[in-house]
Simulated assay, not measured.
Amino acid sequence: MTYLIDAWLDRPHPYLRILHRETGQVCAVLEEDALDELRDQGDLDVNSLSSCEPGVQKEMVRNLFLFCYARALRPACELH
C-alpha cells in the first residue's frame, strides 16, 4: 500500500491526514492536540513531510501510524 501525507500545519487549526494513494481514503487524522504532542516530543519533522525521498516519507508515515495507534490505546491502558 502507498500513502500520501496531507498536512496543513500553518493554519489556525492545523491537521495532518494520511491518505491511501489509490483510493483517497483517509486512514488517519492528527489534529491540533496530537500535532502539539508530536512537536513537544520532537517527533514532527516538517522537513521530512516535504521530502521527495520515498524512504524518508515511508518512515514518516510509519511513525505517524504508530503514534496514532499508541494514542488510541491510551484510554484502554489507563482503565487497568
Rank of each mutant, 00 (worst) to 15 (best):
G55F: 01
T23K: 15
Y3N: 00
D33H: 06
L35E: 01
L64N: 01
D10T: 08
L19P: 02
L66K: 10
S51R: 03
P54C: 05
E37F: 00
R71A: 06
L19R: 03
I5M: 05
E22M: 12
P75M: 01
R62W: 02
A7K: 00
Y69R: 03
S50R: 09
G55I: 08
N47D: 15
T2M: 08
W8H: 13
E37S: 08
L19T: 03
P54Y: 13
P12F: 10
T2P: 05
S50E: 15
L73I: 09
M60K: 00
N47S: 14
S51H: 08
A28W: 00
S51F: 04
H20P: 08
T23A: 11
A34K: 03
G42W: 09
H13N: 11
Y69M: 08
L35Q: 05
C27Y: 05
I18G: 01
G24P: 01
A7S: 08
H20D: 14
Q41L: 15
H20M: 06
R11S: 15
P14Y: 14
L44I: 10
L64D: 04
L79S: 07
L4R: 03
E31S: 09
P54M: 05
L19I: 14
V29Q: 11
H20I: 06
I5V: 09
R39F: 01
E22V: 11
K58P: 03
E59N: 06
P14D: 08
L9T: 11
W8Q: 09
Y15Q: 10
F67Y: 13
P12D: 12
E37K: 07
K58A: 12
R62L: 08
R71D: 06
K58Y: 03
P14R: 01
N63R: 14
E32W: 02
F65M: 07
D36C: 06
T23S: 14
L64K: 02
D45E: 15
H20E: 12
Q57S: 02
L66W: 14
V29P: 00
N63F: 02
P75R: 05
H13W: 05
D33Q: 07
D40A: 14
V56Q: 02
A34R: 01
H20Y: 08
G55A: 12
A7P: 02
L66N: 13
T23F: 12
P14W: 13
L66E: 10
L73K: 10
D6M: 07
